[in-house]
């Protein structure tokens, strides 16, 4: 039986107290929510901590409720299962509910939280293995080693951002409320990440993700499409989150954020610029998907060959665009899809 290393457990009474507990010894203390990312990593000795500070029970992190200006506020401690099934989210921000509902497997979603999913560690199949395996292959940069095993010439780590909900939250222009020992601050989710497989979060280690605020203006459409080889359990190996505002046939704004193609969620800026102001039709969708796939450069450190993943990015973007809003059929006969 694979077992956890020793740690002690603390249960703060508030998010602020939790942050203060971490701040006491940030090197050796970790926030714990559902534990579905943290505990496997501790068991495999990818992370080390003397103290775990539990936040899952905190009332401040609970519940999904209306926020200012029609936004929806999702507590950081809300489980993925609760978010996926929430009526408000399913109705107003279906892409978000879908993303939460596609994380891993049903029992895991009963424990895993929204806050934990925003902060989930980056992944790499040279890193997400047991201690003995990593010792045998030679530790890498991300933990205990001196070189990257995927890109040996590189001085940085290319571990893959593998959260399903983060790209969707960015596409929806979400904002997180972070609680520190001395108070709260707000940060757009887009600014929560750094393009670095090791130091992937831009927040301070002690800051608690208390809430996620998702604007939900009337008429906003959203969709999330995830690529993985099995129907369940697997992390994304590519994914597309789309948020769309249409005014009749005109695209007022389009946001496309990709999952699992870089060390942070990757916003498809060129595609967004192209789409904005254009007509929502077949041709636009195809070109938007083509442009969105451009910046994606998967490496050979996740499931599926990087050749195939790269090629699939365009497909998932196209599928997500179509899922976000029906695309009027082209007037001329012809089939889309074949390459």
């Amino acid at each position: 039986m694979l077992r956890l290393p020793r740690f002690s457990y603390r249960r703060p009474a508030s998010a602020r107290e939790a942050a203060a507990m971490v701040a006491e010894d940030p090197e050796q203390t970790l926030l714990l929510a559902g534990g579905t990312d943290l505990l496997p990593k501790l068991k495999r000795r990818q992370l080390a901590a003397r103290v775990l500070v539990d936040v899952r029970h905190l009332a401040e992190l609970a519940g999904i409720r209306p926020g200012p200006a029609g936004a929806v506020e999702v507590g950081g401690g809300v489980t993925l299962a609760a978010a996926a099934g929430d009526r408000t989210l399913v109705g107003a921000l279906p892409g978000y509910a879908t993303a939460a509902g596609q994380v891993s497997s049903p029992p895991l979603r009963e424990a895993g939280t929204i806050g934990g999913n925003l902060c989930v560690d980056t992944r790499c199949n040279y890193y997400d293995m047991g201690e003995e395996w990593r010792r045998a292959i030679g530790y890498c940069l991300k933990k205990d080693g001196v070189q990257c095993l995927v890109a040996p010439g590189s001085s940085r780590c290319w571990a893959v951002s593998s959260s399903d909900t983060a790209p969707m939250a960015i596409a929806l222009q979400g904002v997180v409320v972070l609680v520190g020992p001395d108070g709260e601050r707000e940060l757009p989710v887009a600014d929560l990440y750094r393009d670095d497989g090791i130091d992937y979060l831009a927040k301070r280690p002690h800051e608690v993700v208390a809430r996620l605020r998702l604007p939900a203006p009337p008429g906003r459409r959203s969709a999330y499409v995830k690529l993985r080889r099995r129907g369940s359990i697997d992390f994304p190996i590519a994914g597309a989150a789309v948020a769309l505002d249409l005014d009749g046939p005109a695209i007022v704004s389009a946001r496309i954020v990709l999952s699992a193609v870089g060390s942070s969620p990757v916003e498809a800026v060129a595609a967004e610029a192209f789409l904005t102001g254009r007509r929502w039709d077949e041709e636009t969708v195809l070109e938007g998907a083509r442009l969105a796939a451009g910046p994606a450069k998967p490496l050979d450190n996740a499931d599926g060959s990087h050749f195939w993943r790269k090629r699939m990015v365009r497909v998932v973007v196209e599928q997500a665009l179509r899922a976000a809003a029906p695309v009027p059929a082209v007037s001329v006969a012809g089939t889309a899809g074949a390459t």
Partner: peptide
């Protein structure tokens, strides 16, 4: 013991959870 197979599923307040990734104190 890593959340990957579901064999350890138990019910917590009637909902399925992976006991290999749950701490008793929680």
């Amino acid at each position: 013991e890593l959340g990957e197979c579901g064999a350890c599923t138990v019910l917590v307040d009637g909902r399925p959870q992976l006991s290999c990734l749950a701490l008793p104190v929680q």
